[in-house]
Amino acid sequence: MSDPQYLETPQGRRIAYHRTEGEGPGVVFLGGFMSDMEGTKALWLEDWARRAGRAFVRFDYSGHGQSGGAFTDHGIGDWAEDAAAALDALTEGPQVLVGSSMGGWLALLTARAAPERVAGLVTVAAAPDFTEDAMWAGFDADQRAALEREGVVHLPSDYGAPYPVTKRLIKDGRAHLVLRAPLHLPFPVRFLQGTADADVDRAVALRLLDHATGPDMRLTLVDGADHRFSDPDCLALIGESVEAVLARAGAAA
Rank of each mutant, 00 (worst) to 15 (best):
G194A: 03
L206Q: 15
W105N: 04
Q193N: 06
A244W: 09
A80K: 12
R144Y: 03
L221E: 13
D47L: 11
M37S: 11
S2D: 15
Q193L: 04
V96Q: 00
H227S: 10
I238N: 03
Q143P: 04
E240Q: 14
G103M: 01
R117H: 10
T91Y: 08
D233C: 02
S230W: 08
G99Q: 06
A113M: 07
G224Q: 09
A126L: 01
D201Q: 14
A113K: 11
R112H: 11
G103A: 01
E116R: 13
G77N: 06
F59V: 00
E116G: 13
P188Q: 11
E46M: 07
L179F: 04
R168T: 04
G77F: 03
I15Q: 00
P25F: 05
T166W: 03
Y17E: 02
L237Q: 09
R207E: 14
R112S: 11
R218V: 05
S62H: 02
G224T: 04
D3V: 06
G104D: 07
S241I: 05
R54E: 00
H154N: 14
R228L: 15
H184K: 14
F29V: 09
A141N: 08
G224V: 10
G173H: 01
A85V: 06
V98P: 07
M34G: 03
M102R: 05
D223P: 10
R50T: 12
M1L: 13
F187N: 00
S230Q: 15
P162D: 09
G250V: 09
G173E: 05
D78T: 14
S2V: 12
G22D: 01
P188C: 12
V245S: 06
T195Q: 06
S101M: 07
V122H: 02
V189G: 09
P10Y: 05
A107H: 05
T131I: 13
A253P: 01
P115W: 09
R14I: 05
G103E: 07
R228N: 08
P4V: 02
L221D: 10
G63Q: 11
L235A: 10
A249W: 03
Q95R: 08
Y159I: 03
Y17W: 04
P94K: 09
T131Y: 06
A198V: 10
G120Y: 10
V27N: 02
L179N: 04
T220K: 06
G39P: 01
E92C: 08
A247E: 14
G22P: 06
R149Y: 02
W44S: 12
G160Y: 02
E81D: 15
P186D: 08
R248H: 12
A247P: 01
G99V: 04
E150K: 14
G39F: 00
F139Q: 15
P4K: 10
G120N: 08
L108F: 09
L235T: 12
D142Y: 07
P25W: 01
G160Q: 09
R19P: 00
K167D: 14
